[in-house]
Structures are given as C-alpha cells and as structure tokens.
Amino acid sequence: MLRGQQVTKRFGGLTALNRVDFAIEPGQIVGLIGPNGSGKTTLFNVITGFYRPEEGRILFDGHDITGARPHIVARMGIGRTFQIVQPFQNMTALENVEIGVLYGQGLSHGSESQARAQELLDLVGLGHQRHTPVRNFTLAEKKRLEIARALSVRPRLLLLDEVFAGLNPGEVKQAIELIFHIRRELGLTLLIVEHVLGALRDTCERVIVLNYGQKIAEGPPEEVFNHPEVIAAYLGSNETH
C-alpha cells in the first residue's frame, strides 16, 4: 500500500533520513519508533508532502507521491495527526471536521457534509460537543478531534504521530481502544509513531526502528524490543518505558 525506496532527507549538513526502505501492506498496524531526533516525524513529513526528499521515492497504491503537496496527498487518501494538535481554534468541532469533508473528499456544502462530519465526531466520542468552540477543549479532547480531522479526508492509510503523548494512563487506554475501534469500523491501515513503547507492544503487528535517520531494525514488537541495537539506541536516551 505504502512503499518507500531509499528515502533520504537532509537539512544542511544533517542527514535526517538516510536511505530508508519501508513497506506497509493493506490492513496492517505498523509502529515507527526511535529516540528523539531519529527521523520519525521527518519521515511522516516526507510521506505527507511537507518535505520533499533529496533522494528516493514514495509510492502510495502504486502512484508516485514523492514531493506531492500536502493537500494532494491528503486527497489521495493519507490522513495524518500531528504530535502537536493542529485544530482551527475559533471554529466549532463540527466545522473543524467539515473542512476536511468538503476539501479532502470534495463533498459540496450542505446537510450531507454536516452529517459526514457528525458521524466522525460520534466515532471519536465528541458527537455531543459538536457546537463547542475547539479552544475550550481539553488536550485529550483535542487529540480525539485531531483523529476525527485526520479521518475527515476519508483516508485509507492513517498516520498517527504520538497520539498518546501527554495523556494519563487511563486516557492512553481509552485512546488505544478508540484506535482499534476506528480501524475495525473503517478498515484502515495504520502507521503509528510512538514514544510510549508499551502502547505499541499491544497494538502493532510490526515495528520499524529508526536511529539517526537509519532503519536499524524491523519485525514483530517482542523481537524488535529485545534487539541489541535497539536497546543500545534507547539506553542513552532514557525513554524506554
């Protein structure tokens, strides 16, 4: 479904991604982990068109999307959440989601677009707060909205960037349940960036590990988490939970 070949991204003298290959098959849940600055978010930005890679190609369902602009990538069916949530602060929850329904799916404005937006809010459990301005939401609510916004372009592939960060253990548990629920309902393929390793152990079938822009391991979570290079990469950074 999504395939990266020799993806390389440099910022001046720093190589943020170094010849990274990856492949995600339809229906999979894949985790993307690595210490801070390892290139996880850069890879997301390259896939979703915020950065153009210097070398390599990104293929989505066989189409070359390397360097396509973000709104084109979104319309093609790749939804994305940001680590720092990106809501429209002065709009209501319903309006926030409706933007993507209108522009990402190309529905015309009317009762149908509002109904679609409402469905997505119901799905993430914010249906009763549709008329609340988003600036009044808590962080956990904003993260739910971020997921609904990502779903609003009707993606087949959803990229989640640290959706669990900043949530308490109870909220993390709810968020995991929500993600599984959404995946079942919509039949999505997921690529998840995460620092909370425990969360990934329970959710992912396969994990890709980046360190200093290079892929150092790939495989089932139990196997990857015991990989000597992965342990070494995480030991210095104090981020293993």
Partner: peptide
C-alpha cells in the same frame, strides 16, 4: 461561503488546513 471557510481555516492553522485537503496556494 465555502471558499471563505477555507480562508478562515488557513488563517487559523495552515498545517491543519493542508491536512484537510485545502489547497493553500
């Protein structure tokens, strides 16, 4: 208007607007 909604979206959050399929250009 619909285009006005996109204008407001870009104004409030350019990144969010692009992720929602709004053509920034």
């Amino acid at each position: 208007t619909l285009t006005g909604k996109a204008v407001r979206a870009v104004w409030q959050n350019p990144t969010g607007a692009a992720l929602s399929g709004v053509n920034m250009g």
